[in-house]
Amino acid sequence: MSDTTPGAPLLEVRDLHVRVGGQAVLKGVSLSVRAGEVHALMGPNGSGKSTLAFVLAGRPGYEITGGSASFEGRDLLALAPEDRARAGLFLGFQYPVEIPGVNNAYLLKAALNAARRERALPELDAFEFLSLVRAKTQLMHIDESFLGRAVNEGFSGGEKKRNEILQMLVLEPKLALLDETDSGLDIDAMKIVANGINSLRTADRSIVLVTHYQRLLEYVVPDFVHVLAGGRILRSGDRSLALELERRGYDWLSEPAAA
């Protein structure tokens, strides 16, 4: 049952423990994201950031050994990945996969109509879909010819990331988990991507940015910044924490901050 109380968390992760291949990767992560908030999740390599994003999106191969995660009050971990997506959760991949033979436009339309069915909205016909998607491709500086190409096949790293954001703009999720969307982008591409993300910022939508660097946060200003290291959130703060991390690195955070 959905919990739509104003101010109630959209995403509530409590004491989440996850093992991968027998190794504990997340060791008690708690995170609360309310509607309209932008959170940045930072941390060194191997700290568990991508694991958290994958676990929340439902990727198989992770053993959840403790804790919980809810989305609008529903037990997120009990849902299949496709149900999580249709409920309004979007994962922007760090390494978007290439799918030869599957047409970009087909995927976008199928995904959009799946989301619309979930919201009890009528499916879009080809004409309506194209007009919707055209505006979004322009915003992302993506040539329309990309729609006719196979998903991510032959795309450059930057094009793949822009394509992820295009998908997000088309699907208009309630919660976007963007896993290192900024990695591999030059400054111009970063601005385009940031522009796309910002265009989706509304009072009823939340964004979790997983990133190594605070550069993206200059363009998408977060409300909260968390540092994940060794499978735990060591510190949370506002934007100034990201700037401090930029100056001092991660080593000084050896002890968890006081609540």
């Binding site: 999106a57 439902g58 990727r59 299949a80 496709e82 799918i99 599957v102 087909y106 995927l107 799946a114």
Partner: peptide, 22 residues
Amino acid sequence: LLFYLLSRGLERQEARTLLKWA
């Protein structure tokens, strides 16, 4: 590939079919 399509909300059956067809 399957997870990528599922994460976009496609039904599992549709995603499998799409990949086989592709």
